[in-house]
């Protein structure tokens, strides 16, 4: 069974007819062609690499049906940079070597962008807890923490 949906992703409206069982993550990747949002576990909703924002809140896009995003605003990693300039989080991840394979990075960025709005001056412990839903197999997290701290500072000063 299909349904017509209109889903806005990074400000662009995508109007499609989609099967009801299509996952939001597959809509983003296959229908909108935005492959920055990754699929790691797809089953338990544990790995977090599919994290996007729906109406400004971090959610795991493999845990939602595409039809649940009908009429809503989705933000993905492709929308983070603006006017050709990387987001302060992206710059800090680059400077601190906070990614190795980079598979987890889009989800971490989209989760953390919301987290820093909620808590602009987090402690290291708070940052670590904010990342429970995002698994990184490469970095050991230390550089990710450093990058988030740097970005938080710059965002506070901005």
């Amino acid at each position: 069974m299909n349904k017509d949906v209109k889903i806005s992703i990074n400000g662009v409206a995508y109007e499609k007819s989609v099967p009801l069982r299509m996952l939001l993550v597959d809509f983003i990747r296959d229908e909108a062609g935005l492959t920055g949002t990754h699929i790691g576990c797809t089953y338990e909703g544990r790995c977090g690499t599919c994290t996007v924002q729906m109406d400004g809140e971090a959610v795991k896009s493999c845990m939602l049906l595409a039809v649940q995003a009908d009429g809503r605003e989705i933000a993905t990693v492709e929308g983070l940079a603006s006017n050709g300039r990387l987001h302060p989080l992206q710059e800090a991840f680059n400077e601190h070597h906070a990614l190795q394979c980079g598979f987890c990075t889009p989800g971490i960025l989209m989760n953390t962008e919301e987290f820093l709005k909620e808590n602009p001056d987090p402690s290291e412990a708070e940052i670590r807890r904010s990342l429970v839903g995002n698994i990184c197999r490469c970095t050991g997290y230390d550089h990710i923490i450093d990058a988030i701290q740097t970005a938080a500072k710059r965002l506070r000063q901005a």
């Binding site: 069974m1 349904k3 099967p19 009801l20 069982r21 996952l23 797809t42 049906l65 649940q68």
Partner: peptide, 12 residues
């Protein structure tokens, strides 16, 4: 993992 066929979706 992908859901089986869903025939109807309602959001009252």
């Amino acid at each position: 993992m992908y859901p089986a066929i869903i025939e109807e979706y309602l959001a009252p």
